[in-house]
Design a protein around this nucleic acid. Sequence first.
RNA 1: CGGGGCGUAGCGCAGCCUGGUAGCGCAUCUGGUUUGGGACCAGAGGGUCGCAAGUUCGAAUCUUGCCGCCCCGACCA
Length: 439
Amino acid sequence: MRVSRFFMPVLRETPAEAQIVSHRYMLRAGLVRQQAAGIYSWLPLGHRVLRKIEQIVREEQDRAGAIELLMPTLQAADLWRESGRYDAYGKEMLRIKDRHERDLLYGPTNEEMITEIFRSAVRSYKDMPRILYHIQWKFRDEIRPRFGVMRGREFLMKDAYSFDLDAAGARHSYNKMFVAYLRTFARMGLKAVPMKADSGPIGGDLSHEFIVLADTGESQVYCHKDLVDMAVPENVNFDGDLEPYIKERTSLYAATDEKHDAEAFAKIPADKQLTARGIEVGHIFYFGTQYSKPMNAKVTAQNGEDVLVEMGSYGIGVSRLMGAIIEASHDDAGIIWPESVAPYRVGLISLKMDDPKTRQVCEDLYQKLGAAGVEVLYDDTDERAGAKFSTFDLIGLPWQIIVGPRGLTNNQVEIKNRKTGERQNLAPEAALDLFTRRT
RNA sequence: CGGGGCGUAGCGCAGCCUGGUAGCGCAUCUGGUUUGGGACCAGAGGGUCGCAAGUUCGAAUCUUGCCGCCCCGACCA
């Protein structure tokens, strides 16, 4: 993409409403625009990041055996009356009437709907177990939205739901999601620690929150240091025994403020005690028959008896993750995107568009990088060098290729790593090779 | 919802206390000089001063009501 034809409204100054760093940079780098309290438009750069996060979530869900579908944002109130939650949910739920005065709601979550879909389609144990998920916009009318996209009212969420014949099966489904989450967050460059959690209004008795450690996190967390850098499970057989992966983590102390047990924490060796701030990016629940019972979701088991299905639900805050990633990865100049979610991998910066040699080398690099499938954002504008450097540091692409007449007198372009700040001078062909051979 | 604050040009702000018909920086446009870390000179455009009512000869400024946004708290992916 050429900057001269792109839509990337960067702000030199910070809008007054943005307090925390991720919010400030998201506005300044032109990732989002606020439309109302807690409701955002996703501008092209932000949209690309959102799609990349979403895709990582999708791939890891699929790998764990979950199946994607898509449910609507609007739901009929009757469905929620069946579970009893229409009245229980309170003002957080946005309630709407259609032209016929029928009660609708903008879904804050989808347990009822997925239970309805499942019960109407599945009769036999032979179609079990299943994990179904979708990635869809939700709305929760928070009393006070804040921190930009980190606590919006409208947000993109992956929510998965598991259906099993018995508690042991449900436990295995829970474990699948547990492991999938470890992999998902690690791929985004995040260190997410599973912590014991309250099951909250959704209910249930087995629940973990996945917390990203970041200084600006909204909640206080306590955990064993070894959890932070624990290796992510590779080559997992999701149909095999997953308990060892779970035990490895749950045997070490980790809790959010609400569940914190100071005595247990004190038993950790002092040099392993970690008190930090955290951002919740995922939450998994096992809740048994809490919805299948009132909604009468049953299947016939092998012995011919009808049994209520055992369920769990598993959320990831997809749009929130963008904020969390920035909180965890930035410096004074701007965002530092991990390569896996960066809107473009490479920024190609022409320092002097009216220098024929510079232009020719840039155009050639741009064309060849593109042909090789490297995502490149090419600044072909007449801006001054300093302005371009600042902009590219702000938007945080992992790599910059800086091309100017000074370097080209020695047939050199400069490669800058945004994260480390390391620079190296290479011939244009060598720079091209550096990015194309690794893809 | 309780407490605090803010709404004046695209962004950041001043002006309000003490009413007299709107200003600064950045950004934008034109011309020129510049050009490897947010240039300089000259000129130009751009504002229902959040909305409404009231007070007044006159309201960005005073009064009342409403709306929106931000921060702290209780709540949440």
